[in-house]
Design a protein around this nucleic acid. Structure first.
Lengths: 154, 154
DNA sequence: CCGTATCCATTCCGATACTG
DNA sequence: CAGTATCGGAATGGATACGG
């Protein structure tokens, strides 16, 4: 399964995985949610090789998930910032984070929490809910037939 | 950054990505949410090489995300089913799916929706909400200091 | 400071063959 | 059917050197 083939598949999960589903890309996005990032800043934060970072950033910009903008701190250089499309990946990052907090640490181990600024406390126990506020359970869902993306009955 | 190094990192996102953040693993999980899967079933569905599938399944079982259980249809063979730990990855898959539906298809392209059986309609517009029902925005969050996972003040 | 280009080691992946 | 073993090619990753 190559990158090009995955783009033909009708499964939304596979298409998304194809765009952002590798170790470095997801971690770049994690950092990007803190605000616009400089190249060297990302490199230090992630411990990634420069050529790989360059490659991933180019891919994200190409996909319309990141944009380059003038860096805030004087210099003539650029910073990488999320587009609206990129910002909508927030749920993906949050979902990964929450699962990790619950299952990927031993008791007493240190972790870096995400703070909810409206409460000042770590963000916890958020869940996917329908518009009526009810949580969606895996057992309540099933895969449907193929249908056009833009169809009226949604 | 090797697999072993990532397991030392304090970032929950990285730890989760380290366990399930590759193309095949996420797609195996996607299928697993439809119910227990046989080996050959996964292989056909994903178009994955048998040795790779074998490797990924072993990793998921090892991580406690999948278990083997007797296959439903008579045979002496096994099926791979989600554990509770695995079922809690539902939010991750949903988040990937939703983003893909919104951004990874051209208008009119066909996609395979996830049906909400409580309504019979495709699942749409679910969002991460706090316990009070309010949606969490990226701009409302910030990374906190390192702290123990099991600490009281949470 | 921000990347690109190159080299080399490692890993990943798919195809095939083989075993119980 | 459910894997394991092996092999070659492709992609990935890190280090370094180099140019804007």
């Amino acid at each position: 399964m190559t990158k090009r083939q995955a783009t033909q598949e009708p499964c939304p999960v596979m298409r998304t995985v194809d765009l952002v589903g590798d170790r470095w890309t997801l971690l770049i996005l994690r950092d990007a949610f803190d605000g616009p990032c400089r190249f060297s800043q990302l490199q230090r934060s992630l411990g990634i090789a420069k050529n790989i970072l360059s490659d991933r950033l180019a891919g994200l910009v190409d996909a319309g998930i990141l944009t380059t903008e003038p860096a805030a701190d004087s210099s003539a250089y650029q910073a990488y910032a999320l587009t609206d499309k990129g910002r909508d990946l927030f749920d993906v990052i949050i979902a990964l984070r929450q699962w990790g907090e619950q299952y990927a640490f031993d008791p007493g181990e240190e972790y870096r929490p995400l703070i909810d600024q409206t409460t000042g406390e770590p963000l916890r126990h958020v869940a996917f809910t329908r518009e009526d506020g009810s949580a969606v359970q895996p057992s309540e869902t099933t895969l449907g037939e193929l249908r056009p993306i833009g169809a009226a009955a949604r």
